[in-house]
Amino acid sequence: MTSPANDRRKGSDTAPLLTVDNLTVTFQRRGQEPFRAVDGVSFSVRPGQTVGLVGESGCGKSVTSLAIMGLLPKRGNQVTGTVDYEGTNLLTLSDDDMRDRRGKDIAMVFQDPLSSLNPVIPVGLQVTEVLERHRGIKRKDAMPMAADLLKRVGIPDPNRRIKDYPHQMSGGMRQRALIAIALACAPRLLIADEPTTALDVTIQAQILALLKELVEDTGTALIMITHDLGVVAGLCDEVNVLYGGRIVERGDRHPIFREPRHPYTNGLLGSIPRLDTVGERLTPIPGSVADNLPWDHACAFAPRCSQPVEVCTTNTPTLEESGGRALRCFNPVEVAR
């Protein structure tokens, strides 16, 4: 059903809901060089589409999501570029206007369900709180809606569960509750920041299936932030691979998995265990983010690259678009035929 052609069609017949253009986040700390955590990132999401932001720790994926949500602290952070949500640049909205949109138009699911719920308030009240805030529904009337929402995300016995405190729920159930809270006001864009990292594998699969189902049912656009390529493979229509704050490769899910062009993407794929190649050693990417070169006059990935050429350490590669894919590399991986 989800052939690549189908994916592309789903993404291309509607106007984008959210367009991020040249988003740059600079951390400015006194006595230190300014650090660009996100460096000219551009991508867009259409209604019903799932876009993945993939990369290792410190590549700027979470900072990107917080910048879109306007949740970065004002002090010490400079955010430039545009985040266009149906014609409105979210970055220029006032704090109050942005607060009215968060939770209503854009919602977010966080990484750690154990600590993302308020421990002293029953889960039901945390759902109704959003309904009260954005839809002006009285708590009494919001309670049955909260139970419905919990039921929709697959929490059994929701009428009893709405009175539970977070510590009385399992990790998977808490993540379901968080998703219910995020979806309470039917936002048109959902940002999921590694929603499955803190969960065990079987629960991960359930949560991903749930997200997929909800996105398909409601036409919500989903930005999926993850370091887990398995998550990407199962869920995303389009994949953006981030490295050192910049997008290094973009493409639809199937082409990118079948023919990774950037050595980093290729390395990521090479470092996942596979079921069909028993006994083969994994090939990890050597080094760490600490080895990065500055993008200003080199490719940041060059020191860890499997196939660097001389120009990689002297010039900055640009993101070249061709045939629905984009690539930032001087010496891309040859497509194996």
Partner: peptide, 26 residues
């Protein structure tokens, strides 16, 4: 700086509610 306060902010909860419902009781 806790996760659940960030989550509440991401839901657009008013500042007064964040302080009195999410921060003070904890």
């Amino acid at each position: 700086s806790s996760d659940h306060v960030l989550a509440a902010r991401a839901l657009g909860i008013k500042r007064s509610s964040i302080v009195f419902r999410h921060m003070v009781p904890n």
